[in-house]
Design a protein around this nucleic acid. Structure first.
Lengths: 132, 132
DNA sequence: TCAACTTATAAATGAATATTTATATACTGG
DNA sequence: CCAGTATATAAATATTCATTTATAAGTTGA
């Protein structure tokens, strides 16, 4: 069997989509086909943790070492490493070594744009809900 | 009656953040404080599943009944209901009843903007990575 | 009321994930 | 090489989550 219908969660990577199986009839309403959606979902998963967003925000104005992130965010060092690994897996950060230090930097400024929009939308949705 | 459901255990809500505890020294670099990041993370979690993105895309050009979503996306009805519940929890969909049919509609067009940006960023990050 | 249809919920299962604690690996100066 | 520092990884745990199967609940027309 080659193609399963459900996108199984095996050991996913950003590039683990091989399909372009069927277009389901719907003419890619907004230029978004299923592969596009899967990739977007993959990035969204990386953005779905508050501590990772704090890390992304912190490294958005220039590279920071792991120890700097640990100090500024008051998180344990293994936890920061764990989250950085996830962010690296989704290609959201660039990594650079300088001696014993390893510097992480936001890979694409649009990622922070997305976070800002999400924050604004969340605020608006909440106010719409509570305004009546 | 319409939108209020009894929580099973104590499931979180978009508004479960009450803090504004500390600003951690960092001066809200981009107008984003910790609460903003938590709310953004909450929405991102709703966007982190491919099937939910498929649903959001489908209902982005007008309300659709559950059965329509089931047919077009070829997902089981309980699975669609489950995802719609999650989308409702994050306030991303508006719900409207008409007889036996229940129609779901995208609550805010910017949500689809976010999906598009994420898709584009993912594509770009992949090409940057594989181009060398 | 009954029967058919539409949608929601419950229970079960397996996989993913965030966090902690403990340990390993890698780099540098002496 | 050694000691110290910086970072990563392993193991363990508890929680969350996507999916399936089965069943309930709400709506409408007869």
């Amino acid at each position: 069997m080659i193609t399963e219908k459900q996108p199984l969660h095996g050991d996913p990577d950003l590039m683990s989509q091989t399909s372009a199986e069927r277009d389901n009839g719907s003419p890619a309403q907004y230029q978004l086909n299923n592969d596009h959606l899967q990739r977007a979902a993959f990035l969204a998963k990386s953005l779905s943790d508050g501590n990772r967003l704090r890390i992304l925000l912190l490294i958005s104005d220039g590279k920071k070492s792991v120890s700097t992130i640990v100090e500024k965010l008051e998180l344990s060092q293994p936890l920061v490493s764990h989250h950085l690994k996830e962010l690296k897996r989704s290609l959201m950060v660039k990594v650079e070594r300088d001696g014993p230090f390893i510097y992480y930097e936001l890979a694409d400024a649009r990622i922070l744009d997305v976070v800002r929009i999400l924050s604004q939308v969340a605020t608006d949705l909440l106010s719409e809900r509570t305004t009546f």
